[in-house]
Computed example of a mutant assay.
Amino acid sequence: MTELDWPEILLRLGAATLAGGAIGLNRDLHGKPIGLKTLGIVGLSTATVVLLAVQFAEPGRMTDATSRVIQGILTGIGFLGAGVIVHESDRFRVRGLTSAACTFLAACLGIACGVGQWKIVLLALAVAFVLLTIGRRIERWLHRALGGKEDPHRPETTPPAGPRNSG
Protein backbone atom coordinates (compact mmCIF):
# COMPACT_ATOMS: atom_id res chain seq x y z
CA MET A 1 0.00 0.00 0.00
CA THR A 2 1.28 3.47 -0.92
CA GLU A 3 0.87 6.09 1.79
CA LEU A 4 1.08 9.63 0.43
CA ASP A 5 1.91 12.45 2.80
CA TRP A 6 -0.25 15.57 3.23
CA PRO A 7 1.85 17.89 1.01
CA GLU A 8 1.79 15.37 -1.86
CA ILE A 9 -1.98 14.92 -1.56
CA LEU A 10 -2.46 18.70 -1.47
CA LEU A 11 -0.19 19.12 -4.50
CA ARG A 12 -2.05 16.51 -6.55
CA LEU A 13 -5.54 17.69 -5.63
CA GLY A 14 -4.61 21.36 -5.97
CA ALA A 15 -2.95 20.88 -9.36
CA ALA A 16 -5.97 18.95 -10.65
CA THR A 17 -8.33 21.68 -9.45
CA LEU A 18 -6.19 24.44 -10.98
CA ALA A 19 -5.77 22.59 -14.29
CA GLY A 20 -9.49 21.88 -14.62
CA GLY A 21 -10.32 25.40 -13.47
CA ALA A 22 -7.96 26.92 -16.04
CA ILE A 23 -9.71 25.04 -18.85
CA GLY A 24 -13.06 26.10 -17.35
CA LEU A 25 -11.95 29.73 -17.23
CA ASN A 26 -11.24 29.59 -20.95
CA ARG A 27 -14.75 28.24 -21.58
CA ASP A 28 -16.28 30.83 -19.25
CA LEU A 29 -14.43 33.71 -20.95
CA HIS A 30 -15.87 32.53 -24.27
CA GLY A 31 -19.41 32.56 -22.86
CA LYS A 32 -19.79 28.79 -22.95
CA PRO A 33 -22.15 26.76 -20.75
CA ILE A 34 -19.43 25.41 -18.45
CA GLY A 35 -16.87 27.29 -16.44
CA LEU A 36 -14.12 27.47 -13.85
CA LYS A 37 -16.06 26.00 -10.94
CA THR A 38 -17.50 23.07 -12.86
CA LEU A 39 -14.29 21.96 -14.53
CA GLY A 40 -12.28 22.67 -11.37
CA ILE A 41 -14.60 20.28 -9.54
CA VAL A 42 -14.26 17.72 -12.36
CA GLY A 43 -10.47 17.84 -12.01
CA LEU A 44 -10.63 17.69 -8.21
CA SER A 45 -13.12 14.82 -8.10
CA THR A 46 -11.27 12.66 -10.61
CA ALA A 47 -7.95 13.25 -8.83
CA THR A 48 -9.60 12.34 -5.52
CA VAL A 49 -10.90 9.03 -6.82
CA VAL A 50 -7.60 8.17 -8.50
CA LEU A 51 -5.70 9.05 -5.32
CA LEU A 52 -7.93 6.65 -3.42
CA ALA A 53 -7.17 3.89 -5.93
CA VAL A 54 -3.44 4.67 -5.93
CA GLN A 55 -3.34 4.46 -2.13
CA PHE A 56 -4.02 0.72 -2.38
CA ALA A 57 -1.51 0.02 -5.15
CA GLU A 58 2.12 -0.94 -4.84
CA PRO A 59 4.47 2.04 -5.30
CA GLY A 60 5.07 2.79 -8.99
CA ARG A 61 2.63 0.11 -10.18
CA MET A 62 -0.78 0.48 -11.83
CA THR A 63 -3.19 -2.20 -10.63
CA ASP A 64 -6.28 -3.61 -12.29
CA ALA A 65 -8.37 -1.85 -9.65
CA THR A 66 -6.80 1.51 -10.50
CA SER A 67 -7.37 0.86 -14.19
CA ARG A 68 -11.04 0.07 -13.55
CA VAL A 69 -11.43 3.24 -11.49
CA ILE A 70 -10.03 5.31 -14.37
CA GLN A 71 -12.31 3.54 -16.86
CA GLY A 72 -15.33 4.23 -14.65
CA ILE A 73 -14.41 7.90 -14.33
CA LEU A 74 -14.12 8.37 -18.07
CA THR A 75 -17.42 6.61 -18.69
CA GLY A 76 -19.17 8.81 -16.14
CA ILE A 77 -17.62 11.97 -17.53
CA GLY A 78 -19.20 11.11 -20.88
CA PHE A 79 -22.60 11.64 -19.28
CA LEU A 80 -21.54 14.99 -17.81
CA GLY A 81 -20.17 16.06 -21.18
CA ALA A 82 -23.42 15.05 -22.87
CA GLY A 83 -25.27 17.34 -20.48
CA VAL A 84 -23.21 20.27 -21.73
CA ILE A 85 -24.23 19.69 -25.34
CA VAL A 86 -27.35 21.64 -26.25
CA HIS A 87 -29.45 20.67 -29.25
CA GLU A 88 -31.16 23.49 -31.11
CA SER A 89 -34.19 21.90 -32.70
CA ASP A 90 -35.00 24.84 -35.00
CA ARG A 91 -31.71 24.62 -36.88
CA PHE A 92 -30.73 21.01 -36.21
CA ARG A 93 -27.38 22.14 -34.83
CA VAL A 94 -25.36 20.69 -32.02
CA ARG A 95 -23.58 23.13 -29.72
CA GLY A 96 -21.24 22.64 -26.80
CA LEU A 97 -19.00 19.92 -28.19
CA THR A 98 -15.80 21.79 -27.34
CA SER A 99 -17.04 22.37 -23.79
CA ALA A 100 -17.92 18.68 -23.52
CA ALA A 101 -14.44 17.80 -24.78
CA CYS A 102 -12.99 20.21 -22.20
CA THR A 103 -14.95 18.36 -19.52
CA PHE A 104 -13.31 15.14 -20.66
CA LEU A 105 -9.90 16.87 -20.70
CA ALA A 106 -10.39 18.20 -17.17
CA ALA A 107 -11.13 14.65 -16.05
CA CYS A 108 -8.03 13.32 -17.79
CA LEU A 109 -5.91 16.07 -16.21
CA GLY A 110 -7.40 15.13 -12.85
CA ILE A 111 -6.44 11.51 -13.42
CA ALA A 112 -2.89 12.50 -14.41
CA CYS A 113 -2.61 14.72 -11.33
CA GLY A 114 -3.98 11.92 -9.17
CA VAL A 115 -1.16 9.62 -10.23
CA GLY A 116 1.41 12.42 -10.11
CA GLN A 117 2.34 12.56 -13.80
CA TRP A 118 3.38 16.23 -13.85
CA LYS A 119 5.05 16.29 -17.28
CA ILE A 120 1.89 14.92 -18.88
CA VAL A 121 -0.27 17.44 -17.01
CA LEU A 122 1.86 20.42 -18.03
CA LEU A 123 2.23 19.40 -21.67
CA ALA A 124 -1.45 18.49 -22.07
CA LEU A 125 -2.49 21.78 -20.50
CA ALA A 126 -0.12 23.74 -22.76
CA VAL A 127 -1.31 21.97 -25.92
CA ALA A 128 -4.95 22.45 -24.86
CA PHE A 129 -4.48 26.19 -24.42
CA VAL A 130 -2.74 26.53 -27.77
CA LEU A 131 -5.60 24.64 -29.40
CA LEU A 132 -8.30 26.61 -27.57
CA THR A 133 -6.57 29.91 -28.34
CA ILE A 134 -5.67 29.58 -32.01
CA GLY A 135 -7.54 26.44 -33.09
CA ARG A 136 -10.48 28.29 -34.62
CA ARG A 137 -8.17 30.55 -36.66
CA ILE A 138 -6.23 27.54 -37.95
CA GLU A 139 -9.51 25.78 -38.74
CA ARG A 140 -10.79 28.79 -40.77
CA TRP A 141 -7.45 29.15 -42.57
CA LEU A 142 -7.47 25.45 -43.51
CA HIS A 143 -11.07 25.70 -44.71
CA ARG A 144 -10.13 28.58 -47.00
CA ALA A 145 -6.88 26.95 -48.15
CA LEU A 146 -8.42 23.54 -48.82
CA GLY A 147 -11.77 24.73 -50.16
CA GLY A 148 -13.84 23.45 -47.26
CA LYS A 149 -17.38 24.53 -46.56
CA GLU A 150 -17.76 27.23 -43.88
CA ASP A 151 -20.71 27.11 -41.49
CA PRO A 152 -22.84 30.21 -42.25
CA HIS A 153 -24.36 30.09 -38.74
CA ARG A 154 -20.99 30.35 -37.00
CA PRO A 155 -20.50 33.85 -35.64
CA GLU A 156 -16.74 33.59 -36.14
CA THR A 157 -16.98 33.72 -39.92
CA THR A 158 -16.36 37.17 -41.32
CA PRO A 159 -19.34 38.71 -43.11
CA PRO A 160 -18.87 39.60 -46.76
CA ALA A 161 -17.51 43.09 -47.40
CA GLY A 162 -19.99 45.58 -48.73
CA PRO A 163 -22.01 48.65 -47.80
CA ARG A 164 -23.31 48.62 -44.26
CA ASN A 165 -26.94 49.25 -43.50
CA SER A 166 -27.06 51.88 -40.75
CA GLY A 167 -30.81 51.72 -40.27
Rank of each mutant, 00 (worst) to 15 (best):
L36P: 00
L13H: 13
L25E: 00
R27D: 00
L18W: 09
G43Q: 04
G40F: 08
A16H: 03
A22F: 15
A15D: 04
G35T: 10
I34G: 12
G14E: 12
N26G: 02
G31I: 09
T46L: 13
L44V: 05
L36H: 01
L39I: 12
K37H: 10
G43E: 01
G24T: 07
I34D: 05
K37C: 07
I41R: 00
K32C: 02
G20W: 06
A19I: 04
S45W: 07
N26P: 00
I34W: 00
L29M: 13
G21P: 11
L25K: 08
H30I: 07
A22H: 06
G24N: 06
H30R: 13
I23F: 10
I41M: 15
G43R: 03
H30T: 05
N26C: 00
L13M: 13
A19Y: 11
K32I: 06
L39V: 14
K32L: 14
H30P: 06
G31H: 07
G14P: 14
R27M: 05
A47C: 04
T46S: 11
P33S: 04
L36W: 09
D28R: 13
A16W: 11
I41T: 08
A15T: 15
K32Y: 10
A22W: 11
S45L: 14
G20T: 04
G14D: 10
N26L: 14
G40Y: 04
V42Q: 00
I23V: 13
A19C: 07
N26R: 05
A19Q: 08
P33T: 01
P33G: 05
V42K: 00
G20C: 07
D28W: 01
L18Y: 08
G35K: 02
A16G: 15
T46H: 09
A22S: 13
G14Q: 13
A47T: 08
H30W: 06
G40E: 00
L44Q: 05
A15Y: 06
I41K: 11
G31L: 09
G21M: 15
